[in-house]
Write a protein that binds this DNA or RNA. Structure first.
Length: 745
DNA sequence: TTGTTTATTCTTTTT
DNA sequence: GAATAAACAA
């Protein structure tokens, strides 16, 4: 800030080791930094930006820096400002999604969109696809919305617009998906809406299709920096390539061992092949770890080194001593939770701040037992993520009204609130409204506003008219520059939303009212913090924040979160709960080697979050789907040499198989063998054991008279396995598996 | 058309 | 066990 600090160059004001220093001060481009867990990645990235600004005199406005969360972006901007003493408001730093949204709002007309487009989240996408399926007369069971969206997402990640798809697809499913992709995009455009994938893909289309615009942005973004590069997808890669094509000043940081978003389209290959794709790349490897103890690093290394598709490297640390990693076996998930809570209480008694403790797990469903145990032990905790505030029904209803005011063409929001609270516009009337709108190629709200409600039959017409009047009234308020929180209050009042909930008079309804109150507060606060901000800005922010963005470490609360959420964070003590096959790795990924490797990385990420103490656990049986299910230790534990951890058997059950009682997980009974003596009672055992699975959802089979088809669901097991199959002629049949031949790849 | 019941599926992970 | 969808009564 003052002249004193200014005199010293950045490199002397921030502590860096020699490799870090080299990476920061290197001026030969492009650059790739492999930054292992805890190796000071954020520090390097921050220093790099500060170095560009201060040492190379690059104006902040010429830098484009993509981070994985908005929170990280905000913190980094602040640190750069305090390092350089210069205001960096003009620096473009944020998630790919938020920066693309920003770019697209400016250039919207070039891709046929208005600047006030709405951003659809997953729920919005699903309700849109469901409506399309209905209108197209397709069965949700043969074309599951999630699957359809997954396929559509793949097209977008590949930056393949509907128009340039060649060929109509090989089979019934693919043909339908392509067909639906076209309709889906048409609907989005008519609704002036984009989904998350569109934000990136449309940015690519924009730059790819307009040479002058591309040039302008290449010129503007003289330096392109990307954090967590291992988690970028193909579209993001194309964007980076486009922006950096002219000047080549691209700097990416990442760790292939921490790539855990493959299911979302991320490609580890992006980082693994960066060197060959960007000619003349300088590579830096940060392998010194400043976070964890040696035992933790050894443990983590034995996990990750089994993976084949990775760049060779190994973390090391200066600190040699440290507590052994613990692996504990519990009888069931309840006992596991209690055991963890006990240990946490112990730590707290020894003066450990609870904010330094995290319990990590694979699925959100696991958090409930843990929460109960912590509550019983009177230990304060926070759950990061889970059902986020903005996902709740009542909140989404409010937001839908707000979005509809900003963008009257937003059909998904319109469908959501048209009959909320109930105005007598049932499914049938809604369908006919949508049909009429589609026929004239206008949005539903537009239709309602111009048509005076004569469209639908008697009863619903009154409700439609009511809705129309409310919307017109609210529109006036927006035009009169009414403060955002006031608009929300008016919505709740005019629509009768509040009074409907009050009338219910249940605890549930009261809860919702409280949540709505919280939303009003949030909006008021936001308006105070952003005096220039419009309602549209607020809505954009809301749709692009993540759960970790809102998380703030509280000194006195234990942190509960999924392994995915924990990426980039660190804690003094980390518990990894539920290290069992079927959970980690997830049962659904058993047959895919790539996913098995990704889940292994998930374990690696979890383990490397710990600074001082790492406690892993698995259970013999666990409640899932309301049933007690036998579990096996995670296969990943098999790869860890026995001397890398202390094994603690807290299993005091008599029913446990004798061989397993006193031994480490390594020595347990062989896999893939079902217990014969169990047939009488535990029929479900077979269902969950890992016998070789011949038939899986999504795989293809053939039948001698119906031909080739895709498995939609599997029921029963052994000889009685039945399959529901979608055949290429479009028919869906439930058949005995023995009549079907699995397709071999 | 709305609000009840029952049946079914389901859970990965999220910008 | 929960959330959603289909099925049914009013």
């Amino acid at each position: 800030m003052n002249r004193y600090t200014k005199k010293q160059p950045v490199l002397d004001r921030i502590v860096l080791n020699s490799i870090q220093k080299q990476a920061v001060s290197c001026d030969i481009w492009p650059q790739l930094v492999f930054a292992g867990a805890g190796s000071g990645k954020t520090r390097v990235l921050t220093a790099k930006i500060a170095y560009l600004i201060e040492h190379l005199r690059v104006p902040p406005i010429n830098i484009f820096a993509a981070t994985f969360t908005n929170k990280a972006a905000g913190e980094m901007r602040e640190r750069v400002e305090s390092l350089t003493g210069l205001p960096c408001g003009a620096l473009w730093i944020g998630t790919f999604h938020s920066m693309c949204a920003r770019l697209l709002r400016r250039e919207a007309p070039h891709i046929g969109y208005p600047a006030n487009f709405t951003i659809y989240d997953r729920d919005d996408q699903i309700s849109l696809v469901k409506r399309i399926l209905k209108e197209e007369g397709l069965d949700e069971r043969s074309m599951p919305p999630r699957g359809v969206l997954q396929s559509i997402s793949r097209f977008k990640n590949a930056c393949t617009p509907f128009e340039s798809i060649e060929g109509g697809g090989d089979n019934y499913y693919d043909r339908q998906v392509i067909h639906l992709y076209g309709i889906y995009q048409k609907m989005l455009k008519r609704s002036a809406a984009m989904d998350f994938d569109d934000l990136i893909a449309n940015a690519v289309y924009l730059l790819r299709g307009n040479a002058d615009i591309l040039k302008r942005y290449q010129n503007r973004f003289q330096y392109v920096l990307v954090d967590e590069y291992q988690d970028t997808n193909n579209a993001q890669f194309l964007l980076v390539k486009l922006l950096g094509a002219a000047h080549k000043r691209v700097f990416v940081v990442g760790d292939d061992d921490q790539s855990i978003y493959g299911w979302r389209g991320a490609q580890v290959e992006n980082i693994l092949s960066f060197e060959s794709l960007f000619e003349g790349t300088r590579v830096f490897k940060l392998e010194q770890n400043y976070r964890s103890t040696q035992p933790i690093l050894d443990f983590a290394h034995s996990v990750i080194s089994v993976n084949t598709n990775r760049a060779d490297k190994q973390l090391w640390t200066d600190t040699h001593n440290g507590a052994e990693v613990a692996v504990t076996r519990y009888r069931d998930d309840r006992q596991e939770a209690t055991g963890i809570a006990e240990r946490v209480a112990q730590l707290a008694a020894n003066g450990m701040r609870l904010g330094e403790v995290a319990v990590l797990f694979r699925t959100n469903a696991q958090s409930r037992v843990l929460e109960e145990a912590l509550r019983r032990a009177k230990l304060p905790y926070v759950v990061v993520g889970a059902t986020s505030f903005y996902q709740r029904k009542e909140i989404k209803d409010c937001l839908a009204y707000l979005r509809l005011l900003i963008n009257p063409r937003d059909d998904v929001s319109c469908a959501r609130v048209l009959n909320v609270p109930t105005r007598g516009i049932g499914a049938k009337s809604q369908a006919s409204l949508f049909e009429a709108a589609a026929k004239r190629n206008v949005a539903v709200l537009e239709l309602i506003e111009e048509q005076d409600g004569t469209l639908t039959g008697g009863k619903a017409a009154k409700g439609v008219e009511q809705f129309r009047e409310i919307m017109l009234l609210l529109r006036d308020l927006v035009e009169q520059q009414t403060p955002p929180d006031e608009i929300l209050k008016q919505i709740l009042d005019l629509t009768g939303y509040t009074s409907a909930l009050e009338a219910e008079d249940t605890v549930e309804a009261q809860n919702r009212l409280d949540n709505i109150g919280e939303l009003v507060n949030a909006l008021t606060l936001w308006a105070q913090d952003n005096p220039e901000g419009t309602l549209a800005d607020f809505l954009e922010e809301v749709s692009l924040v993540s759960d970790v963005d809102k998380w703030e470490r509280r000194e006195t609360s234990v942190n509960l979160m999924t392994l995915h959420c924990a990426k980039g964070l660190e804690f003094g003590v980390v518990f990894l709960a539920g290290l069992e096959d079927g959970l980690l790795p997830s049962r659904q990924n058993f047959d895919d080697e790539r996913s098995i490797e990704e889940e292994r990385r998930l374990l690696y990420v979890g383990a490397t979050r710990a600074r001082k103490e790492l406690c892993c656990s698995f259970v013999d049986q666990r409640y899932r789907f309301g049933r007690l299910i036998p579990m096996e230790p995670s296969r990943y534990l098999d790869d860890i040499p026995r001397e890398r951890y202390r094994f603690d058997d807290r299993c005091v059950t008599f029913s446990a198989p004798p061989a397993a009682v006193s031994s480490a997980p390594k020595a347990k009974k062989p896999r893939m063998v079902a217990r014969e003596e169990d047939h009488t009672q535990e029929t479900s055992y077979d269902d969950f054991s890992q016998e070789i699975v011949q038939y899986r959802m999504g795989h293809h089979v053939s039948h001698k008279s119906y031909g080739r088809g895709k498995i939609l669901s599997v029921s029963g097991f052994g000889k009685d396995t039945q399959l529901t199959v979608l055949f290429s002629d479009g028919s869906r049949r439930k058949l005995m598996a023995k009549f079907l031949e699995p397709e071999v790849w």
